[in-house]
Design a binder for these strands. Structure first.
Length: 252
DNA sequence: AAAGAACACAACCGCAGAAGC
DNA sequence: CGCTTCTGCGGTTGTGTTCTT
């Protein structure tokens, strides 16, 4: 069916629908940079966009937001998705909180594409497996390069932030990764909460999860800022049962 | 090379809960 | 306290691209 046949891109009841144009994206980006996220229903009035609030929010959250991670789901991310979906079911937004830069929509689409079908057809052919493996290797390579690049850029900023937080005395640093002297976990000092033992943390730092240890902190944490107290409590209980160490990290 | 299948992604809808009045 | 509005979530659908036969 064509866009025209679907009435996409046309103005319906005053609102445009269908794919976003570059101009619309720019208007929305300008709006958010000036007014911040939220109050989506006022976007149309202020920016001149002929899109309703829901459409604007969706476009921003799923596509325009600057900290979104582009590119395919990595094998590590896939593991987490599988694990969390097994425990949480279709709670995509909760799963997405564990994958910084990924949206619920993206994960939902990924799951639907890759695993929904597998419920019926559990075995992949050898060909498919080989293809998937090649693809994974390429992705891993790309991601590694990307992470190295980002780390270089963020190094100065992050070090300053960590140092200032240390100076405030709110955090404790724990070097845990043997043979990885640059790998450091940071978690809040709480008098009434036991910290994760270094032994446990070491166990978490496997080859597969090394990078995961880094993103878990920033991503999960950033999202907690926007959650209600009740949601936070539920989230903490859920997440701490899945990822040892999460509970300590989330105590701010 | 062409057709069909599979995949990846974007976007809409309806509903529910939170927030504001 | 009830109503309205806003926001976020999950489900679904449609389109374009890539892969397979």
């Amino acid at each position: 069916m064509t866009s025209a046949a679907m009435n996409w891109g046309v103005v319906k009841e005053g609102w445009r629908k269908g794919p976003w144009t570059a101009e619309e994206d720019k208007l929305l980006i300008d709006y958010v940079s000036m007014h911040g996220e939220g109050r989506w229903n006022s976007v149309a009035g202020i920016s001149g966009l002929k899109r309703n609030g829901k459409s604007c929010r969706l476009r921003w959250v799923n596509y325009l937001k600057p900290d979104l991670k582009k590119g395919q789901i990595t094998p590590d991310e896939e593991k987490i998705i599988i694990d969390l979906h097994a425990r949480l079911g279709n709670r995509w937004s909760t799963i997405a909180r564990s994958l910084p830069g990924r949206t619920d929509n993206e994960i939902k689409n990924y799951w639907r594409t890759h695993f929904k079908k597998n419920e019926k057809q559990s075995n992949k052919s050898a060909k498919e497996k080989a293809r998937a493996l090649r693809h994974q290797q390429q992705q891993q390579q790309q991601q590694l390069q990307q992470v190295h690049h980002q780390l270089h850029q963020q190094e100065d900023v992050d070090m300053k932030r960590i140092v200032s937080q240390l100076e405030e005395g709110d955090y404790k640093l724990s070097s845990v990764a043997q043979g990885q002297p640059e790998m450091v976990f940071m978690y809040p000092m709480m008098a009434d909460e036991p910290c994760v033992s270094s032994t446990l943390l070491e166990a978490m730092v496997t080859e597969d999860s090394l990078w995961g240890g880094l993103w878990n902190w920033d991503g999960i944490h950033a999202n907690l800022d926007h959650m209600s107290a009740t949601s936070k409590a539920v989230e903490k209980i859920e997440m701490s049962s899945f990822y040892p160490g999460y509970f300590n990290q989330s105590l701010i």
